[in-house]
Every structure is written in structure tokens, then in C-alpha cells.
Design a protein around this nucleic acid. Structure first.
Lengths: 198, 198
DNA sequence: CGTCTATTTGAATGTACTCAAAAGCGGTGG
DNA sequence: CCACCGCTTTTGAGTACATTCAAATAGACG
């Protein structure tokens, strides 16, 4: 039911027995957030592993000039949180906020530690998850270093067509590392180019 | 002797017994590279975990315009390689190259898998290493998104004063995501500002 | 319907890049 | 030991990509 998306997401990477599934279900509890609510506040410790089952959320950082920069964004089926804060159980540099009305499954750091012991496959899963997250960050650094804003936007659209439609443009701009104004101009330029082609 | 730096680097994060140390020593074998030699070639699989005991090396990516972009740089006491290629044992997108005459300790993927079983503390160590690497990438993304080239350069100098002195400027520029010409201009501007202050 | 926020548009500006050329530096061979 | 070669760094002029600021327009929500 509620946990199906979570379990199938885990089982993409590791094989679980029915007992494992049952235990994982017992560890993760549902929670709802209204649009705009905070899943994690800057300065607080991110105490939970959080998996989105409905809606969407962003993790962002506020720099010294007060500008927001989105590190991570996610919709249902994705993990969200301040990973850095969670891993080291230290105060978060980032805020995590719901973009739509959002439902998550969450489990505390302590419960996850225990889960690792009882379901070693989950331990393995978590490691794989970190590795993928690491690789995703590396790709993002490479893109930021080597591609223009236009190319990054096109790559984003290609990779996450669903997000493009659901998230406000300003968040996509922030994720890409450009201003919302410039993204708007980029989009117009691309549209003009498209219409000329016909 | 040769393995001391490696062991003390591991023991910063986990506690080892003498038997553990002995086994780790047996797994890692030394290897030397001349300045300019490749530790890993693009397209080949990065088969080894590599730890620098002397010298320095960079991991870089070549984009479609033929420009190099440095993802990672390291001197003695640092791990180096194409982590993505190593983790998934897939062909590397990157080259890894010695900047000075360099000596490393290396262990194959298979040997490391066995090491995980025999020395569980090494398993734990490796996980911690990935977590730190992940966090470092996140910081780098944040810096690229929120800071000017000048601020990034100053942050780099503050964080890695040793590297600043030993590596050619063009590699530092590439790591920071700017052209060598522009870094040269930045340095002059900073010098002029310093001299005025006196 | 009115308010609040998000998006679009335009003009002026700034940061960083490209290209080209000169200067510096290190290694190598005569 | 010096001269030369190749590579790195510096410098300058012109340019491009992206930002800032301000204002208008469009959408979303109560």
C-alpha cells in the first residue's frame, strides 16, 4: 500500500525476503506536509531518512547574499533530505521544503542503524544509494564546468521531463545555477528557434 | 615504512588491530609513475584503489570542445582515481595523470572485496570515505553555484595552501572552473589590492 | 475580486572567455 | 655553459554569456 513504492525502489538494487519487507514496513512511518512546509530547517539536525511517496520537495542552501541555491530536488519515488546533516548527525546547512502537498515515509537515524543489522541487504542498499548520489554529483560538477546554461537546461529537460512540468521555473533555474530571468530568456530563445525550424 | 601513511590515514577513522594492519599491508602494493604518465586512461576500467604516497596526480575529464576539466586533485596522503569507474567497474570517463613523479599504493577491486570480509573495519572505513567524498562534492557544487571565481580561488587557497604552491596554475584554474588566463588576471588583481593595503 | 507570487521583458552592466602575442621558465642537447 | 625548444604564464583587446534592476504581465489562492 503506502510502502509499495519504497519497497520496489529498494528492490531495484537488492533482493529482499518477505520478512525483510515486513520489517522495513514497520520501520518507516508516513508523514504529510502542506505545500511550503519545512521537512528540515537550517541549523537543525536532519534526523530521518525520508522517501517521498507523493508530491515534491527541494533541498536548498542560502548564501551570504541571501540567494537560494537548490542542491537537490525530488518527487515521489525519490529520497530527499540534507544528506550531509543526516550522515554525520550534525546541524544542517540547508533547508528542505515541500513544493507541493507532500507525503513521505521516514525512519529515524537510530531505527536505520538497527535496520542495517536486521536486514543486511538494506545496509548494502544504502551504500549503493550513496554511490549513485556521489556519481550524480560528479556529473553535475562536470556539467557546471563544461556546459553553457542553455545546454544544462536542455540536459535537465532530457533527463527529468517530469520535473520540468511540475516544478516552478525559478526552482529549476536555481538548480541549474542561473537566475529565473535568464532561464525565461533561454526558453523564449529556444521556442523561437523551434518555430523557425518548422 | 611505505605503508605507514596509508595505515595512519585509515586509522584516522577506524581502529585497527595489528593483524588488520598486517593484512592491509599485504593487500596494497607500491607502484611508481613518471611525471605525465597515466594512472588511468579514459575508456579503460579503473581497476584499483589508489593511494598517493609521494607526488601528485589529477583526475580530469575532456569535454566535447576538447577542454580539460579537473574533477579531483591529490598529493601524498590522498586517494586518487576515477571513483565512478572503480565503484561500478565500468569504463572511465576520465583520465588520471601524474603531475610530478609519483608513488602510489594500489589494490585491485577483487582484493578490496576480500579485504572487506577479512577486515570489516576497512569496509566501514571505505563507506566513511565515500561519505566524505560526497560531502566534499556537495560543498563544491555549492561554491560553484554561489561564489565568484575570485572567492572560489581564495577559498581554495585557504583550504589547500600546499596545493597552491606545488601545482601548475592551469590545473588550479581548471579545478576552479575558470580559464588559466582569467586566473592569472585574478592573481594580479589580488596582488595589487594587497600592495595598496600596505 | 484582490493580493501575492511567479514569469516575462528590456536596458544597462559585469564577469569571465576567446584569441593573439609576448614574456618567463625549465629541460635538453650541442 | 649556453642556446634553443616547448610549455606555462602573463597581458591586452574585443566579445559573449549571464546578471542586476526595474517594470509589466500573468497565474494562483483565498
Amino acid at each position: 500500500m503506502v510502502h509499495d513504492l519504497l519497497l520496489s525502489s529498494i528492490e531495484k538494487y537488492v533482493t529482499l525476503g518477505e520478512a525483510d519487507r515486513e520489517y522495513i514496513r514497520s520501520v518507516f512511518t508516513p508523514r504529510k506536509f502542506k505545500k511550503g512546509q519545512f521537512l528540515v530547517h537550517e541549523g537543525a539536525v536532519c534526523r530521518n531518512q525520508m522517501f517521498i511517496t507523493k508530491g515534491s520537495a527541494i533541498t536548498y542552501f542560502i548564501d551570504m547574499e541571501g540567494h537560494e541555491h537548490i542542491i537537490q530536488l525530488g518527487i515521489e519515488g525519490w529520497w530527499i533530505g540534507d544528506f550531509q546533516s543526516y550522515i554525520f548527525q550534525q546541524p544542517a546547512q540547508c533547508n528542505v521544503q515541500a513544493i507541493e502537498d507532500t507525503e513521505i515515509l521516514e525512519a529515524s537515524y537510530e531505527k536505520i542503524q538497527k535496520l542495517y543489522e536486521i536486514v543486511p541487504q538494506y545496509d548494502r542498499f544504502h551504500r549503493i544509494l550513496i554511490q549513485y548520489a556521489y556519481v550524480a554529483f560528479q556529473q553535475r560538477i562536470l556539467q557546471n564546468l563544461s556546459m553553457s546554461a542553455e545546454d544544462r537546461y536542455l540536459a535537465f529537460r532530457g533527463k527529468y521531463p517530469k520535473l520540468e512540468l511540475r516544478l516552478p521555473q525559478k526552482y529549476i533555474a536555481s538548480y541549474l545555477g542561473i537566475t529565473p530571468e535568464f532561464l525565461s530568456k533561454l526558453k523564449r530563445k529556444l521556442q523561437e528557434r523551434d518555430s523557425k525550424r518548422e
